[in-house]
Design a protein around this nucleic acid. Structure first.
Length: 116
RNA sequence: GCAGGCCGGGUGACCGCGAGCCUUCUGGCUCGAGGAAAGUCCGGACACCGUAGGGCAGGAUGCUGGGGAAAUCCCAGGCGGCGAAAGCCGACGGAAAGUGGCACAGAAAGGAGACCACCACCGGCGUAACGCAACUCCGGAGACGCCGGGGGCAAGGGUGAAAAGGUGGGGUAAGAGCCCACCAGCGUCGUGGUGACACGACGGCUCGCCAAACCCCGUCCGGUGCAAGGCGAACAGGCCCCGAUGACGUAGCCCGCGUAGGGGCCGGGUCGGCCGCUCGAGCCGCCGAGGAAUCGGCGGCCUAGAUGGAUGGUCACCCUCGACAGAAUCCGGCUUAGAGGCCUGCUACA
RNA sequence: GCGGGCGUAGUUCAACGGUAGAACAAGAGACUUCCAAUCUCUUAACGCGGGUUCGACUCCCGCCGCCCGCU
């Protein structure tokens, strides 16, 4: 995922949290927010992992895997939006035991629930 | 069992990520986490702060020698403790400068005293022809017993973590370093050692424990931290108060020094960009000095620099199935976490 | 990056270096026809590992966990 397809500023995160909508599942929370009308460049993703989840190795690994899973997705996420994925406790352990394919299913689940 | 050192899954393919370089402009090449990157416990480098100067206060530190930029660091040695040994551990200056503490128990917890017991002496009372535990000693000039008195003494008693050196002998009315021998401690001298210290001789005869209790002594310490700091961008108004009778710098206080600005409220701007940013007390190899830490010389190498923060996905094969864990200015240490494997030396047992 | 504070019964808090206490809660009993209230009794704890000391919740060092600041 290239840098322009990521959320890179604290103000962007704030905007998505403050003005966007959200949906949550057992392991993930998804926020999304429609940017300025007519801006159809590409979807942008930010990943947030609380410190409660684990050490920096755990947190970095789950972020990498979520970005990879996001990139593997077909065009399910409309390009006009900014997204923030929040990891909930238990996800890294579950991925370790159930594998990467399971993580892709969980990501698809939360996107479907959002009904974009 | 102990000590020291090292490695920390590997190889290949495709798709991705970050940086640099090249480029025919959409690709190619190269590099891309750790021994602890961690905790932030010490020490620096570096940077800035209208000065960093002194005193007090405060903090840190504390055997000796060497190393090191420095350090709650390293090496070697001494001393003390633990262990059968190899070896490990130790904030290890001062208690005859002062203050304070030593619960319970115990007579007494520190410049001494005397509860019980012991010992002669003096006085009083009661007695013994056989008495006294016993005698060849002593005893009606009163032994012995009881009571009282002023003394002597600190060996014994029980308590305690600890009781004024320990053991043995002499000595004495009973005793005591009162005297003697050995041991321990202290002091002086000598010898060895750079030194901590060790050994020996002599001396007088002894001075409790706690300073990780206050403290005393020696040594060291300006503050803030890369979110330092610099460049550029944006905004660049109003009111009030204090101030050469010294505000403020200045930090806990005082002195000294410097200097003309400082503070509050409202309004406005900035949650962006570039540099700092990785070549350094650097790493590797060889040679030399040294007992080692380490140092010197020569040759070679360039080895992450992100900024919501770069290592992931899929597949194949192999092995002993892979722990703890992710750089954020850099470096030297300490501490903590940690699956497995390799090498070297030593000790004990068989 | 820098700095500060706190860990004691189930909970909220105490304790000059000398036996860890109080309140509430919980359990049992008493009182009551029953419940509540009240009274009595009981159960329980110094975050972990070293060190100093005769002796450590207390003093020192190192970890672990939690909370809070500054920029």
């Amino acid at each position: 995922m290239q840098r322009r397809h990521r959320l890179s500023r604290s103000r962007d995160f704030d905007a998505v949290y403050r003005h966007g909508r959200s949906v949550s599942t057992r392991y993930l929370v998804l926020y999304w927010f429609e940017r300025e009308a007519g801006d159809e460049n590409a979807p942008r993703l930010g990943v947030a992992v609380p410190k409660k989840i684990g050490g920096s190795v755990i947190r970095n690994r789950i972020k990498r895997r979520l970005r990879e899973a996001w990139a593997q997705l077909p065009e399910e996420a409309p390009a006009r939006n900014d997204y923030v994925l929040v990891v909930r406790p238990g996800l890294p352990e579950a991925v370790e035991t159930r594998g990467f394919d399971w993580l892709e299913e969980r990501l698809g689940e939360v996107l479907q629930k959002a009904q974009l």
